[in-house]
Every structure is written in structure tokens, then in C-alpha cells.
């Protein structure tokens, strides 16, 4: 790892000022950043530790909106009664990620900002447009088993590895960010981006902006939500595919639905059309299978991830069955 300077930011403003300079990176839990620095994928000159900032609260306002600070630990969020009661889907997704130790370190902001786990991105001797724009994409024509089936480009077919973000995308969360120009809100589904021509950009956070927190609007999904993650082993592995499913069911009929998939795209893949198609349908396996077909429209596989064309809809149907209490 290249040597770097380390400082601690004591105010939000000082953090924002610090990251305005090129070569400076924020460090929160460090679980992704240090890993990448050890491999030489990124080599900042300076790290600004933001863990002193008071951004770790979990609270609910009068309208029932849940607010979570960017520095709240993944474990703290997953364990918080407020979260378990109001947004159990988020707790489930968090608990499906990483390991208990890592969740004790990882923060909400860091989790959103984590980079892809694409092997070519990690190996600095391989081509990768995300790491080194213009060098080519190692995964296309290579080992693409973990890669995208939706929204990929001919520059990059990587997936966003987060579980938490899949739930947040489904739950219509909003991201609060702060920069030199002040604060702004980004709808969660617009936070991460598709690779297009610029896979080096994972998200729409502007340079020098700091994530301060996320909010989830009130909803009636608590009773019928489920996060299902399919992986190569039962725990401590990234998703092959995952689904966050949230339903509001009344007398066996679906009144509202929120669906997002993980492991399939460069961003948490929200399934708007499938959601719409579910509304008014009975909460049955039949309905779920129908919308799974809708959800898969436009999917495109590569050499080693063709199985995802079957696994993704299967995961969706299973997640919905769980959410609806059918299993």
C-alpha cells in the first residue's frame, strides 16, 4: 500500500473541504477502501477519517419517515428496533451481507459507495475500464459469471455488490448529500448509475460531496417484505442474484409492491414494470410467475452468467412467495 497522510475531520465542513482536493479520500469503516488500497486499485495521498462526525443516528419523524445517518454501522442499523419494526426489509438485506465483523465496521455511506467485486477490477494487471478507463473490459469475453444481465454496456458489465442498496432502492429511499454548494437530495434509484460510456463512475455523487444520510418514507410493507439472496455458499458470499420484495396485501390482493434485484446490474435494479403489474393481482405464485416474466424483459447474458436468466426470475418468485407468506 502506498503511504498516505491521515487526518480526522471533526466537522462536516472540514471533511467537505478536505475531499475537494484531488487524491483525497474519505474513510469510514474502511472495509472496502483499505481492501482496494492494499491491492493498489486506488492509491490516495490522503485519507480523511469521518468517523468523528455525528452522522450515526437512526431516527423516525412524525410522518414515520426513517432517517439513518451515513455513519450508522451496518450492524447497528440491522439491529435497531426502529428499523426492524418499520423497515424489516432493510434489516434483512443488511444481515444477508458480508459477515458480522464486517457489518460492525461497515457504514451506510461506505456500503453505498463500495466498488464492484469484479475480479478484473481488483487485479491491476488485467484490463478494466472501471479502474483504468480505456484499458478494455476484462470481463467481457472473460469470466463473467458474477456479472450483469441488465443495463450493461460494451464498456463494463460489472454489478454493484451491495445487499443493503437493493433494499433501499426498493423502499424509495432518498440520499442526503452535502457539498461545497450545500445540501441536495438524490432519489436512491438515481444514486447509482449504469456504466454506459463511463464505467469509472459508479454513481451520481459529485466530486467533493459527502453522503450524510438516507431517509425512507413511511410505508405499509413491514408485514410482507422479504430479502432473498442466492449465493454459492450459505453465508459470507456475494449474491449471484438477490431480490428485495415488499408488498402491501389486503384480503389476498396486492395493493402495492416494491421490487428490486441485486447481482444483476451496475446498480440495484428496480423492477418498476413488475411492481405495476402486481397491483390488483392476487398474492399467489401464479401472479408472481407472471410478473417474473415482465421483470426479465430486456435481460441479456454473457458467456458464464446465462444461468442468471433462470435464477433471477426464480429468485424473484421465491422472494415474493416469502413476502406474501406463502412459504
Amino acid at each position: 500500500m502506498k503511504a498516505f497522510q491521515y487526518t480526522r475531520a471533526t466537522t462536516q465542513q472540514s471533511a467537505i473541504d478536505a475531499i475537494a482536493k484531488p487524491g483525497t479520500k474519505i474513510i469510514a469503516g474502511g472495509t472496502n477502501l483499505i481492501d482496494l488500497m492494499k491491492r493498489g486499485v486506488i492509491a490516495p495521498d490522503k485519507l480523511v477519517d469521518i468517523n468523528q462526525l455525528p452522522l450515526n443516528s437512526i431516527s423516525v419523524n412524525k410522518l414515520g419517515h426513517l432517517h439513518i445517518g451515513a455513519l450508522a454501522l451496518n450492524s447497528a442499523v440491522a439491529e435497531a428496533n426502529l428499523v426492524k419494526d418499520l423497515q424489516p426489509l432493510l434489516a434483512m438485506a443488511l444481515n444477508a451481507g458480508a459477515s458480522p465483523q464486517l457489518r460492525n465496521m461497515a457504514t451506510v455511506g461506505g456500503n453505498m459507495m463500495q466498488r464492484t467485486r469484479c475480479a478484473y477490477f481488483y487485479d491491476t494487471t488485467m484490463p478494466c475500464n472501471k479502474r483504468e478507463p480505456g484499458s478494455g473490459c476484462g470481463a467481457i469475453g472473460g469470466y463473467s459469471r458474477m456479472h450483469a444481465i441488465f443495463g450493461a454496456s460494451d464498456k463494463c458489465i460489472a454489478v454493484h455488490p451491495s445487499d443493503m442498496c437493493v433494499a433501499l432502492a426498493a423502499l424509495d429511499a432518498t440520499v442526503t448529500v452535502s457539498g461545497r454548494k450545500g445540501q441536495r437530495l438524490i432519489p436512491f434509484t438515481e444514486f447509482h448509475r449504469l456504466p454506459g460510456e463511463h464505467p469509472e463512475m459508479d454513481n451520481t455523487l459529485a466530486p467533493g460531496e459527502l453522503i450524510t444520510g438516507i431517509s425512507i418514507p413511511h410505508n405499509n410493507f413491514a408485514k410482507n417484505s422479504y430479502y432473498l439472496k442466492i449465493r454459492d455458499r450459505q453465508s459470507y458470499a456475494f449474491a449471484l442474484t438477490s431480490v428485495a420484495a415488499a408488498l402491501e396485501i389486503s384480503n389476498g390482493t396486492i395493493k402495492q409492491a416494491r421490487l428490486a434485484m441485486g447481482g444483476v446490474a451496475h446498480k440495484p435494479w428496480r423492477l418498476f414494470d413488475a411492481e405495476k403489474a402486481l397491483v390488483g393481482k392476487p398474492a399467489t405464485e401464479e401472479s408472481f410467475k407472471q410478473v417474473a416474466e415482465i421483470a426479465m424483459q430486456g435481460a441479456k447474458a454473457y458467456e458464464y452468467n446465462k444461468f442468471k436468466l433462470k435464477l433471477a426470475p426464480a429468485t424473484l418468485v421465491e422472494a415474493l412467495k416469502h413476502a406474501a407468506g406463502l412459504v
Partner: peptide, 11 residues
């Protein structure tokens, strides 16, 4: 509990 390999001493 945390993984000390991903924890900087300074932190």
C-alpha cells in the same frame, strides 16, 4: 468484533 486486517491502527 471487527476484522483487524481492515482496521488502520491510526483509526
Amino acid at each position: 468484533r471487527v476484522n483487524s486486517c481492515l482496521t488502520l491502527g491510526v483509526m
